[in-house]
């Protein structure tokens, strides 16, 4: 444990924003690195989304991405499951490794990557005309799973996990668009969980939720940690410090600091991090 901690600090103490290529090798030796961004940059036309980010995502842990609005958190997150493929004008350079394999390698099918690396978006995105039930199992049904007993089970489990079951159990056949904003967000979470991704990317999943549901979702993440690797974007510093194991601080497209959360929130390496966390800017 202590050793692992020491190794992490060794890795993470280096200035993460712009690491020369050669130094990234040591990150892979971590053993528990599930995903790994290597000199990852995203450009929108000529504008920079994120610049040269090198960052490990540890297996079965929660990594929080924090930083002021517009600093590139969403941009970075989307690069981890190739969502930028679908954005006109967006260009990704560098590498993003999943289990040591670059997901941007030419032979890789982005559809498979997205099945393994799920995503919950900043805004709720239920399929509006599909029923609540069909929304949850959309990912399963559309790949050909038809066993209704199994689907029923998945729906109940996923909705329970997303803290939505009690509110919708009597109207599973109603359209997903008929739910409130916060309910829609939890439906989106349930839908992402139903396909059982290995890595789950969550972009401010609780920003539209009340404290009660937020707590339930945080509990869920703590539970899920044993099976899923989670990356969460949050503007809520308490949330980041409560639930995450590692925290990455982004600032105008740069990764400023990456450290174990405890260190980040008690004794950050960078002044800018401290200023942001303590609310002096951003």
């Amino acid at each position: 444990m202590e050793q692992a901690e020491a190794r992490k600090t060794l890795v993470t103490r280096a200035p993460y924003g712009r690491r020369p290529e050669g130094q990234t090798a040591e990150l892979r030796e971590m053993g528990k690195v599930r995903m790994q961004a290597r000199s990852l940059s995203v450009h929108y036309g000529t504008a920079v989304g994120v610049r040269d980010v090198t960052l490990p995502i540890y297996n079965q842990q929660i990594t929080a991405l924090i930083g002021p609005s517009g600093c590139g958190k969403t941009t970075f997150l989307r690069a981890l499951n190739r969502m930028h493929d679908q954005t006109r004008g967006a260009r990704v350079t560098g590498q993003a490794l999943l289990d040591g394999e670059d997901i941007y390698a030419p032979k890789i099918d982005p559809v498979i990557i997205r099945r393994r690396v799920g995503m919950v978006f900043q805004k709720p995105t239920p399929f509006p005309t599909m029923s609540i039930y069909d929304n949850v199992v959309a990912g399963l049904k559309l790949v050909g799973i038809r066993n209704t007993a199994l689907l029923d089970e998945v729906v109940e489990r996923a909705l329970h996990q997303a803290a939505l079951w009690d509110e919708v159990k009597d109207r599973l056949r109603n359209p997903g668009g008929s739910l409130s904003g916060g309910q829609q967000q939890r439906l989106s979470i349930a839908r992402a969980l139903a396909v059982e991704p290995e890595v789950l990317l969550m972009d401010e999943p609780t920003s539209s939720l009340d404290p009660q549901s937020t707590m339930r979702i945080e509990e869920l993440m703590a539970e899920l940690k044993t099976q899923v690797t989670i990356v969460i974007v949050t503007h809520n510093m308490q949330q980041a410090s409560r639930i995450s194991d590692h925290t990455a601080f982004f600032y105008v497209g740069d990764l400023v600091e990456f450290n174990p959360t405890r260190k980040m929130f008690t004794n950050p390496d960078e002044d800018r991090t401290e200023d942001y966390i303590t609310g002096r800017f951003g």
């Binding site: 559809v111 099945r115 978006f121 399929f127 959309a138 839908r191 396909v195």
Partner: peptide, 19 residues
Amino acid sequence: SIREAGLALGLPRWRVVLS
């Protein structure tokens, strides 16, 4: 965003369109 939601579930583009 609806299309992205489908893609993020690991559905191929044509599946997202059809379903």
